Amino acid sequence: MASRVQACTACHGKEGRATPTGYFPRIAGKPAGYLVNQLINFRDGRRSYPQMTYLIEHLTDAYLQEMADHFAALDLPYAPPPAPQAPPAVLERGRVLVERGDASRDLPACVSCHGAAMMGVQPFIPGLLGLPRDYLNSQLGAWVTGQRRAQAPDCMAAIARKLSPQDVSALSAWLAAQPVAVGSKPAAALPAPLPIQCGGVMAVPVASASPAAPR
């Protein structure tokens, strides 16, 4: 496995624990279902990054699953976050969107899907802490433009298109500034059903009467 993932660690850092000051995201400790979904999305063209596609375009689902399982099993400490990169008012806007969302725009809180600790949920939902601000900005932008897609219904694309540029900046600034407590891991399950249907996590229950669900 060490030789198989050597190309991964060239960008994602030793053992897949990229630092929050870089661009490439941490993959160590992410849920295996999320990691394999993203590998398949790169291979099958739902995500656009030529270097990733080149590396895995001929790999089978089973081969990619083994790689995902390897990184998911790594239990490694997180680097401290950088100093906040936005004024207090912007950070507060980000915190409110993360913790409460915006019902007036049918925007669910980030915590309603990514978990109260923002560390993700097994087996398919990623954590949002310990990621560089530039990476968070770019991924939200990629959903808006269609450069990043998931299996339909693509819940993150629907959510991202409701965010203003100011919302994106506030979210990424607040998330990137949050420390990760020692021993933090993805939650085993959400305390309530998802507020919106997501094709990449269809095994997770969805609230049947949620105002944020697609109509």
Results as ranks from 00 to 15, higher is better:
Ala103Ile: 14
Arg149Lys: 07
Gly33Glu: 07
Arg215Asn: 11
His114Tyr: 09
Arg105His: 06
Ala116Lys: 12
Gly115Arg: 05
Pro80Leu: 09
Leu35Gly: 01
Gln139His: 04
Ala160Trp: 08
Phe24Asp: 03
Pro214Asp: 03
Ala2Asn: 07
Lys162Trp: 04
Trp174Phe: 15
Asp134Pro: 00
Leu74Asn: 00
Val168Arg: 08
Ala116Arg: 11
Ser104Gly: 12
Ala72Pro: 12
Leu128Cys: 03
Gly127Arg: 03
Gln139Tyr: 04
Tyr49His: 05
Gly29Trp: 10
Ala68Asp: 03
Ser184Thr: 11
His58Gln: 09
Pro84Glu: 07
Ala103Phe: 05
Ile56Gly: 01
Phe71Ser: 01
Leu55Cys: 00
Ala181His: 06
Glu66Tyr: 06
Phe24Tyr: 07
Phe71Glu: 02
Ala203Lys: 00
Ala188Ser: 05
Gly29Phe: 10
Thr60Trp: 08
Val201Met: 05
Gly29Arg: 02
Ala152Glu: 14
Met52Arg: 00
Gln65Cys: 02
Val90Asp: 02
Arg105Cys: 02
Thr53Ile: 13
Asp106Pro: 00
Ala207Asn: 06
Ala79Asp: 11
His12Met: 08
Pro87Glu: 08
Ser3Asp: 14
Gly45Cys: 13
Ser138Glu: 13
Asp154Glu: 10
Ala158Gly: 08
Asp134Tyr: 09
Pro84His: 09
Ser104Gln: 13
Pro50Met: 02
Pro205Gln: 05
Leu140Gln: 04
Gly141Leu: 05
Pro88Leu: 09
Pro80Lys: 01
Lys30Asn: 08
Asp75Ala: 12
Val206Ser: 01
Pro214Arg: 05
Leu128Phe: 08
Glu66Arg: 11
Met156Tyr: 02
Pro191Ser: 04
Leu163Met: 12
Pro211His: 09
Gln178Arg: 12
Gly29Pro: 10
Leu163Tyr: 08
Arg133Thr: 10
Ala173Gly: 02
Ser184Gly: 03
Met1Glu: 10
Cys11Ile: 12
Ala79Asn: 01
Ala72Asp: 13
Pro211Trp: 10
Ala192Asp: 00
Phe124Leu: 07
Pro88Ile: 10
Asp44His: 09
Val180Arg: 00
Ala2Thr: 13
Glu15Cys: 00
Ile56Gln: 01
Cys155Ala: 15
Arg133Tyr: 06
Val98Thr: 13
Ser104Cys: 08
Cys8Gly: 09
Ala212Trp: 06
Lys162Ile: 13
Gly45Leu: 13
Gln139Met: 06
Ala177Ile: 14
His114Ser: 04
Ala73Glu: 04
Leu74Glu: 08
Arg17Gln: 07
Gly22Tyr: 14
Val90Ser: 09
Asp106Leu: 15
Glu99Met: 15
Gln51Glu: 07
Pro25Ala: 04
Pro211Arg: 09
Gln51Leu: 14
Ala209Glu: 12
Arg148Asp: 03
Cys8Trp: 11
